[in-house]
């Protein structure tokens, strides 16, 4: 049988997917044990139990300086920035993307501007944001929003403009004016696509969040990672990275669930 025709069943597929992850964990454990045997004070590859202890301390004990549980306050601060930034970007996309897609006049007026903004590397404008908005929350939120919005706007505008022209003509023969066309034909078909492009944009959004926190912050997941780096505290960095991945996976699953529940027609489902 040809390799391309071997299709694992769902249970088998899950086990096969687990294999590389388990292999990596085992390899890590072996390497870690080897290094610690050579030097018991090594900090680069801490054991799983050392990481567990560090996590337990970060996630349960209050920091005497701030009076808060460090991991918890870091998570809240980061998710707040990420959430507000993403919400601003999403609403901007909805407004601008649909207008660009539906109204040729708006496309002519704003299309080139959006295309120019989209090619600017967002990190390059971070200093501008810091100067203009200070080192507080506003500049970090602005970086996330400005970082992901141009891609999402262009994606949504292209999707809406690509809706079959027959649909737009049909809606007009059914008496729809421009506003009704936007509201009843373009908007509902744009929403599942918006969630799709938001799912793709969550990765870059985390990058911008952590960059901003690394440069100027006093709390946050990215701030903590870059702070403890000075002490080679891999026992904190690795669990923090794992925790960020977990948050990202949960966000993605949540967005997919929302899309499936709210737009069954877009996923081949029934009412």
């Amino acid at each position: 049988m040809r390799v391309v025709n071997i299709k694992p069943r769902p249970g088998a597929r899950f086990l096969i997917g687990l294999v590389p992850i388990v292999v990596i964990l085992i390899v890590y454990a072996i390497l870690s044990a080897a290094r610690l045997e050579a030097n018991p004070n090594d900090r680069v590859l801490p054991t799983f139990s050392a990481m567990g202890q560090a996590v337990a301390q970060f996630a349960t004990q209050t920091d005497p300086r701030t009076g808060q549980i460090t991991a918890w306050s870091d998570t809240i601060a980061s998710l707040y920035r990420l959430g507000i930034g993403v919400i601003i970007a999403t609403f901007a996309t909805l407004l601008i993307g649909i207008a660009l897609g539906v109204v040729p006049l708006v496309r002519a007026a704003l299309g080139p501007l959006v295309a120019i903004i989209a090619v600017i590397p967002p990190i390059a404008i971070l200093p501008i944001l810091f100067i203009a908005m200070g080192l507080g929350e506003a500049s970090k939120i602005a970086l996330i929003a400005l970082g992901i919005a141009p891609f999402m706007i262009r994606d949504l505008a292209a999707h809406v403009a690509g809706l079959p022209v027959e649909q737009m003509i049909k809606a007009q023969t059914l008496g729809a004016n421009s506003w009704q066309l936007t509201l009843r034909v373009a908007l509902p078909q744009a929403l599942p696509r918006l969630i799709d492009s938001l799912r793709l944009s969550m990765g870059p959004a985390w990058v911008f969040l952590i960059s901003a926190e690394a440069i100027a912050s006093d709390v946050g997941l990215g701030y903590r990672i870059f702070l403890v780096r000075r002490y080679l505290a891999m026992d904190i960095i690795l669990p923090y990275v794992a925790w960020i991945s977990l948050l990202a996976i949960a966000t993605d699953a949540l967005l997919l669930l929302i899309s499936r529940k709210a737009f069954p027609w877009a996923h081949g489902g029934t009412l």
């Binding site: 649909q167 003509i169 049909k170 007009q172 023969t173 008496g175 078909q189």
Partner: peptide, 21 residues
């Protein structure tokens, strides 16, 4: 040169809205 409800149309494809029952 603009569509109007006094002229209805059925195309070969894409005549109905996929997001509506």
């Amino acid at each position: 040169a603009e569509c109007h409800p006094d002229r209805g149309v059925v195309f070969q494809r894409y005549s109905v809205f996929p997001h509506l029952t």
